[in-house]
């Protein structure tokens, strides 16, 4: 699947992205040299823990960075256009029309004083210049597509009348109403119950096939990502540490962080023995780590890991990792 799309080149290409926050406490490099390719018809998973920079990556793509955040270096290329160089007016046209985003909290993304149908119509009118009547028609169709029960009635309801799962479906309908090429989903199921989560994930998979959509799926949950992603990038402390096909990441992790994350998830039927936890705390973004970012928590650490930062290097076709000792880790994990 990937080889096919690679012929056409990636839909979105991020090169050496640096997004920095100039806070009162000091410089926070929220994204520090990130490379990522997103292909059409593919779901790219971006996995990482809180504060690793995954949401900032998404906001950098959307051009929605809150102050004091700024892209200081690098490029984000969407089909030949570098989004970091575009003026705000042009970005506004791309946002919502070519790239759409859904968030963790569907609650706060919807305006409580308008019906959900009206809000989706407004988005269609703004981006596509359709009449109210046409917009209403499209909205009805989209509500059906996202499998909202009795879509006609739902359109006339207010956000508080819908459950969390239904609100997220409305958000998906709104995001897809303008036929975007790329959908960024930032922890879309984290606030939902497992049984509801399952439905949303299945819906995203279905819609991707129907609309030949590219999805950037951001989550902290390795279980969720394996349900949707074709390719997975693992992020740690503002950088991607490993990136490969979904199956490959789970079968053959080559970075000690990926390996540690996989091991530290409890497995059903896994017995009562201790979980092999990753020691230590998440890194403090204000204090840059010398050498490899992961070395203070790494089981495989050697002297040279403290000195020099490993580059994200291709170790097998389509499999990149940023670790000096990746070959030994492979042996360990098997």
């Amino acid at each position: 699947m990937r080889d096919e799309s690679k012929n056409n080149g990636p839909l979105l290409e991020i090169k050496n992205l640096q997004t920095h926050f100039f806070t009162n406490e000091g410089l926070v490099k929220a994204v520090d040299g990130l490379d990522l390719e997103i292909f059409s018809r593919e779901t790219s998973g971006l996995v990482g823990e809180s504060g690793c920079g995954k949401t900032v990556t998404a906001l950098s793509i959307m051009g929605l960075l809150p102050s004091p955040g700024k892209i200081t270096q690098g490029s984000i290329t969407l089909q030949g256009r570098d989004l970091t160089q575009l003026p705000e007016r042009k970005l506004q046209k791309i946002r919502g029309k070519e790239i759409a985003m859904i968030f963790q909290e569907p609650m706060t993304s919807l305006n409580p004083i308008f019906t959900v149908g009206h809000q989706v119509e407004e988005a269609i009118i703004f981006h596509q210049g359709k009449s109210r009547k046409e917009a209403r028609e499209i909205t009805r169709e989209m509500f059906g597509k996202v499998e909202l029960p009795s879509p006609e009635e739902r359109m006339n309801e207010y956000p508080h009348q819908l459950s969390g799962g239904m609100k997220q479906r409305v958000m998906i309908a709104m995001a897809l109403s303008c036929q975007p090429k790329l959908l960024i989903a930032d922890e879309p199921t984290t606030a939902l119950d497992v049984t509801i989560q399952q439905g949303i994930l299945a819906l995203l998979n279905k819609l991707q096939d129907e609309h030949s959509l590219a999805i950037l799926f951001i989550t902290h949950d390795l279980g969720v990502i394996s349900q949707v992603a074709n390719r997975i990038a693992v992020m740690y402390a503002a950088k991607i540490v490993e990136c490969a096909q979904a199956g490959e990441i789970f079968r053959n992790p080559h970075h000690p962080y990926t390996l540690g994350l996989l091991n530290s998830i409890p497995k059903i039927g896994g017995g009562e023995k201790r979980l092999p936890a990753i020691p230590g705390q998440l890194p403090n973004p204000l204090v840059p780590v010398k050498g490899c970012r992961f070395h203070p928590r790494c089981f495989f650490v050697k002297d040279y890991c403290l000195e020099k930062e490993p580059p994200l290097a291709e170790i097998a076709p389509g499999h990149k990792t940023a670790c000096w000792r990746h070959s030994e880790i492979k042996a360990q994990s098997n």
Partner: peptide, 9 residues
Amino acid sequence: EAIPEPGVI
């Protein structure tokens, strides 16, 4: 059934 197991697609 709804538990998403990592690696189990």
